Simulated scan of single mutants.
Amino acid sequence: MSQSQPDAHSAAHGDPARTPPLYSPARVRELLDRHGLRPTKSLGQNFLIDGNILRAIAEAGGAAPGVPVLEVGPGLGVLTGEAARRGARVTALEKDERLRPVLAETLAGLDVQIVWGDALEFDYASLEPGTRVVANLPYYITGVLLSRFMNAPAIESATVLVQKEVGQRLTARPGEDAYGFLSALAALHGTVRHVRDVPRGAFLPAPDVTSAVMRLDFDRSRPLPEPALLRFVEAALHHRRKTLRNNLRLVGYAADAIDAALTRTQLRPDVRAEDVPLAALQSVARELGVVR
C-alpha cells in the first residue's frame, strides 16, 4: 500500500467565517457535487453529518495531543479532521482513490497521513504501540476489521461506529440472545462498552440500520489467544442454539471424549452452546487437548 500526505491547499472556499462545517449536509453535498462524486454503496460510504456524534466519537476514542490514531475509511475527512484538530497524529486508510482531491482539500495543514489501499491488506503490525482506532467502519467488513484490530498488539483500543446489531453482539454475555462467536472473541481480548446509539439521520446518505458507537479496550498484558482456541470457540458457537455436544461432534470430536470433558467441567450433556460461560468453554478445550 502506498503512503502519501494530502496536498496542501485551502480547505475553505469563499469567506471561511461563512463556510459551513464539514459535517453539515449542505457542505457534504457541495463537496460531493464539486468533485463529481456519489457515495459508493459497495464501499459502505455513509458520511457522518452530526457534529455532536462526531465529537463524542473522538472524545470516547481518546483522540488527544500526541496520541497515534488509526482511522479506516476517512471518506470526506470529517472524523479525521476532528481527531487531528485535537492534536492526535492520524493515519487514515482509504481505498477509494476518487477521494484524493477531497482529502487534500479538507485535511490541508493537519497532521494526517493517508495510506491509499485496502484496509484488509494493511500491515497492522507496523503500527506504533499505543495506537487507538477511531473510525466509522465500513459495515460490510466490520467483523474482519475488528478481528485484525484485536490481533494487533500495537492497538490499545478501538472506538468504532458499527451497526447497532453488531454492537449488541459485541457486548452480549452467554445466555443472551445476541451472544455468539463475536461476543466471545471480544471477551477473550479485553472489554467492550456501548458509548451511544446513532440514528440513521446522522448520515448522508442514511443507512438502512441504526448504528452504535462502541469502545473496545484490548488487554495487552495477557498473551493473544491461541489460534487453536479461537477455532475451537468458533466451532462450538457456530450453531449456538444447538447443544455444545452436537456442535463438537459436527467438527469431528469423539462422543466419549466430549462426554468426559463435559463431566469434568461440570456441564450438562444437553447444555446449549450459547449458555456456556467462556471460562467453561476454555476448560472443555483444555480437556479435549485443544490447548494446554
Rank of each mutant, 00 (worst) to 15 (best):
P6M: 04
D7Q: 15
A11E: 10
A17M: 14
R18H: 11
R18G: 14
T19Y: 01
P21H: 03
R27N: 05
R27A: 05
V28H: 05
V28N: 00
D33L: 07
L37A: 11
P39Q: 00
K41G: 10
S42L: 08
L43C: 04
Q45S: 12
D50S: 06
N52I: 02
I53G: 12
L54N: 14
A60R: 03
G66W: 00
V67P: 01
V69W: 08
L70G: 07
T80K: 01
A83M: 15
R85V: 12
R89M: 12
V90E: 05
E94V: 06
R100W: 02
P101D: 02
A108Y: 00
D118K: 04
D118T: 13
R132Q: 11
V134S: 07
V134W: 02
Y140I: 05
Y140A: 14
I141S: 09
R148G: 02
R148M: 07
M150I: 05
P153E: 04
E156P: 08
K164M: 06
K164V: 12
Q168W: 07
G175W: 03
E176Y: 00
F181Q: 02
A187W: 05
L188E: 15
T191R: 12
H194K: 10
V195H: 08
D197I: 11
A202C: 07
T210L: 06
S211C: 04
S211L: 03
S211H: 05
L216S: 01
R222F: 05
E226A: 15
L229Q: 12
L230H: 09
A236F: 00
A236E: 10
H239Q: 15
H239W: 09
T243E: 04
L248F: 13
L248N: 03
G252P: 11
Y253C: 01
A254H: 11
A257N: 11
I258A: 01
I258L: 01
D259V: 08
R268W: 11
R268A: 15
A273K: 09
D275Q: 12
R292H: 07
